[in-house]
Design a protein around this nucleic acid. Structure first.
Length: 523
RNA sequence: GGGGCUGUAGCUCAGCGGUUAGAGCAGGGGACUCAUAAUCCUUUGGUCGAGUGUUCGAUUCACUCCAGCCCUACCA
């Protein structure tokens, strides 16, 4: 069984398109695994702890739990709207998670991997970190980007990260698949190469941060971010869970795990801290997860940020383009691992050109002609010719190319291949002109064959696109009147001839009504 | 400072030591009419960031530079 996870989102603000991209990617890969006939478990969720949550809550005069629960609802609502269907939901305030985190901390404490030390320095509340002198600007001061900075001296608990660095270096070097894409692995290796990092501070005194998980061996402290957040990947996968915990069986899930994360949290958290944490509590090299690192969506060439005021709201996009329209765009217009540029013009172009014109129209004209000339009834018949043969060959090649691309976590490439088949089918209509054949009684057998090929193609396409566009796929399958068995055909079982002679198709209805270009907004 | 990435048609991007550098979208022309004014055909358009070198030959290799970006660090 495969486990696919996403980063858990920090509940200090509304989700933006970057959050949406990551979850849709995970959802698409999960749906693909099922389509490929493999068992998979999809875990996502939220990180509800932390200082910023506590602060935002204080500003509003509410309990941190109240605040983060409200923000959490926004995330859940969006995933629902975008058809992101997860099997497990991680929430760091969940008691089962807290129990697991504390058990791990206790074990490390018992093993002597944690120690307490005093540290004095300047602390940025906004960034939740101690600052060093190199964080000072040219005037020797801490700039406004750090927010309020205060000098503090406090004791904290540290994890002996340095004991495991050598092991990690070796692991990354000997496991080329540990990080995808390869250039990110290089970055991690570079970071490890000259890394003589100190140990990892894993606590905050309760006097400063109450909103967190208490250290079981020193109750004046809560654990700070890493052990709290990263541990979700195993706590909600059932690691050392109680029998009645209603969690998956860990041993079944963990053997083949992919963490989908953004490039901003590869080094150091997921590339360094997390594998070392797992190693420290006894995970073998074979039980190390794989990291799939995705890039960012820039906005018209600029980084998306609240201060620039260019944050794109996925909820609004879903209103305009539908969940499937947005999912298609997010999967089609970025190559896994890279960055891409978001623009309204671009998504409209993709929607109208690819979805409405190429695909939607092909489905519509095919079903319409089938209905009009044959009452919707298919007949495979005996007729065959070069053009029909070519369409069948392209369909077969498409299945292969699609499979290769998806197995490589490259949905944008898989979609590109599917569209080659769609374009081929549209061309097939022009080449065979079924509307002309329909006028000649003598061409009846050829017309049957042409219509059959077209309907078969869109039926196959409906299966291939389902991981990316589940609603559109189901919608088309309704129009095609596919049986439940046909709809659940596995990728490996797909072959020409999904539809038998006598199959009757339904009424055509546009899948993706064209969007009118918005009027230029005059300044 | 170290490491890496990117720079190819108006836009988004492929590509590759070698005949006339490609795709999609946009623009021009045409065909067709089953269809969501869709589809199909055709066409305009690029000194492949700049320069030097290696080579019979470079967009493709090396080096330098310019521009943009990413990771990471230090002098202190």
């Amino acid at each position: 069984m495969k486990l696919i996870t996403t980063a858990i989102d920090y509940t200090n603000g509304a989700p933006h398109i970057g959050h949406a991209y990551e979850k849709v990617l995970a959802d698409v890969l999960t749906r693909y695994e099922r389509f490929a006939g493999r068992e998979v478990y999809f875990l996502t969720g939220v990180d509800q702890h932390g200082q910023k949550v506590q602060q935002n809550a204080e500003k509003e005069g509410v309990h941190p739990a109240t605040y983060s629960n409200r923000v959490t609802k926004g995330f859940i609502k969006l995933w629902d709207k975008l058809d992101v269907k997860y099997d497990g939901w991680a929430s760091t305030t969940d008691q089962r998670h807290i129990t697991c985190v504390q058990a791990i901390l206790q074990k490390l404490y018992d093993d002597g991997q944690l120690y307490k030390e005093s540290h004095k320095g300047f602390y940025s509340i906004r960034q939740e970190q101690f600052l060093t002198d190199r964080d000072r600007n040219d005037e020797g001061e801490f700039g406004p980007e750090w927010g309020e900075v205060e000098e503090v001296e406090e004791e904290n608990w540290y994890f002996k990260l340095s004991d495991h660095i050598e092991w990690l270096r070796n692991h990354v070097e000997t496991h080329p698949d540990f990080v995808f894409p390869q250039f990110r692995r290089q970055e991690l290796l570079n970071a490890l190469e000259r890394s003589d990092k100190g140990d990892l501070c894993i606590s905050r005194p309760k006097s400063r941060l109450r909103w967190g998980i208490e250290l079981p061996f020193d109750t004046d402290f809560v654990t700070y971010v890493w052990f709290d957040a990263l541990t979700n990947y195993i706590s909600f996968a059932g690691y050392q869970a109680a029998e009645n915990a209603d969690l998956p069986v860990f041993e079944k899930l963990w053997s083949n795990t992919t963490h989908i994360i953004g490039k901003d949290i590869l080094v150091p958290p997921h590339g360094i801290y997390w594998p070392i944490m797992l190693h420290a509590i006894g995970f073998s090299d074979d039980d190390m997860p794989r990291l799939l690192v995705h890039g960012w969506w820039n906005i018209r060439g600029e980084k998306m940020s609240k201060s620039l005021g260019n944050v794109v709201d996925p909820d609004q996009l879903a209103d305009t383009f539908g969940a499937d329209g947005l999912r298609y765009y997010l999967m089609r217009d970025i190559s896994t691992g890279g960055d891409s540029d978001f623009s309204p013009e671009r998504i409209i172009m993709r929607f109208n050109s690819d979805l409405a014109n190429d695909f939607g129209n092909l489905a519509n004209r095919t079903l319409n002609m089938t209905k009009r000339y044959r009452g919707g009834v298919l007949n495979c018949g005996d007729y065959d010719d070069e053009l029909c043969l070519d369409v069948r060959q392209v369909a077969e090649q498409t299945r292969k190319d699609y499979t290769d691309a998806m197995n490589g976590d490259l949905p944008h490439l898989a979609l590109e291949h599917v569209w080659k088949l769609i374009v081929r089918a549209n061309k097939f209509v022009e080449q065979t002109a079924p509307f002309t054949l329909a006028k000649e009684e003598s061409e009846s057998a050829k017309l049957d064959a042409v219509l059959y090929h077209l309907v078969e193609v869109i039926a196959e396409v409906s299966l291939l696109i389902a991981p990316v566009m589940p609603q559109a796929a189901a919608n088309l399958q309704d129009q095609l009147r596919l049986t439940p068995e046909q709809r659940t055909t596995l990728l490996s079982d797909m072959a020409w001839g999904l539809l038998p002679t006598g199959h009757e198709t339904g009424k055509p209805k546009p899948l993706f009504p064209r969007l009118q270009l918005e009027e230029e907004t005059e300044g």
